Simulated assay, not measured.
Amino acid sequence: MNTYFITGATGVLGSAVVRELLADSQNQLVLLVRAENNAALQKRAAWLVASLEINTVTANRINFVQGDVEQEKLGLSPNEFAKLGERVTHIIHSAASVRMNHSLERARLAAVTATEHVIQLAQLGWKNSSLKKMEVVSTVGVGGKRKEPLPEGWLEEPRDFHNTYEQSKAEAESVLRVEAERGLPITVHRPSMIVGNSLTGYILHFQIFYFLLEFITGRRTRGVIPDISERYVDTIPVDYVARVVSWSSRNPLTIGRVLHLCAGQKNATSLDKARILAILKFREKGLFVPYEHILPVPWFKLLVSSILPFLPRKTRRSVNVLPIFLNYTENQVFTNTETCEILKNSGFILPCPDEFLGPVIDYYLSATYSV
Rank of each mutant, 00 (worst) to 15 (best):
R87P: 14
A23G: 12
Q26P: 05
I186R: 03
R106F: 11
W47D: 13
T113V: 11
Q265P: 13
F64G: 10
E171L: 00
L52Q: 07
R316V: 01
V98N: 02
N63R: 15
V49T: 12
G85D: 02
V195Y: 01
P149Q: 12
G14H: 01
N37C: 05
I279H: 06
P158H: 02
Y210R: 01
Q42S: 15
S51M: 14
L31V: 00
A50W: 11
V258E: 07
V178Q: 06
A45S: 10
S370K: 13
K266V: 11
R250I: 10
A111V: 03
T337P: 06
K266F: 10
A110F: 04
W154G: 09
S25C: 06
N320K: 15
T254H: 10
V224W: 09
V175Q: 10
V321F: 07
E20C: 11
N327A: 13
F64E: 07
E179D: 00
E292A: 15
A95E: 00
R146F: 12
F215R: 07
E330N: 12
H117P: 00
R222A: 14
S249K: 05
E355Q: 13
Y210F: 02
L253Q: 08
E166R: 00
D234R: 15
L109N: 07
V137L: 14
P353C: 09
V244C: 05
M1A: 14
F81P: 04
T89Y: 03
R99I: 05
T115Y: 01
N267Q: 11
I54D: 02
V98C: 05
I92Y: 02
G201C: 04
Y202H: 14
S25V: 05
L176W: 00
Y232W: 14
Y369G: 06
Y232E: 10
S346L: 11
R44M: 08
W154Q: 07
L41I: 02
L287N: 01
R243M: 07
E166Y: 02
Q167M: 11
E135K: 08
S77Y: 03
W247C: 13
L21V: 07
R44D: 01
E156W: 05
I225M: 09
L131K: 00
G256L: 04
I342V: 12
R222D: 13
T10V: 06
R316E: 05
Y202M: 15
A111S: 08
A40D: 10
L104N: 13
H293D: 14
V17M: 07
G286H: 06
V188N: 06
T315F: 09
L280V: 10
R146Y: 11
T58A: 10
G201N: 03
R99V: 01
V140I: 12
V140H: 08
E338F: 09
Q332S: 15
S370G: 14
L121D: 02
V178W: 12
K273Q: 11
V140Q: 06
A95G: 01
R220T: 13
P252R: 04
K133H: 06
D272E: 15
Q265N: 15
T200A: 05
A274N: 05
A111M: 03
S370V: 14
I119Y: 02
R316K: 11
E156N: 14
S94G: 02
L280T: 11
S51T: 09
E86F: 12
K314P: 02
I6R: 04
I91H: 00
L52T: 04
I6V: 01
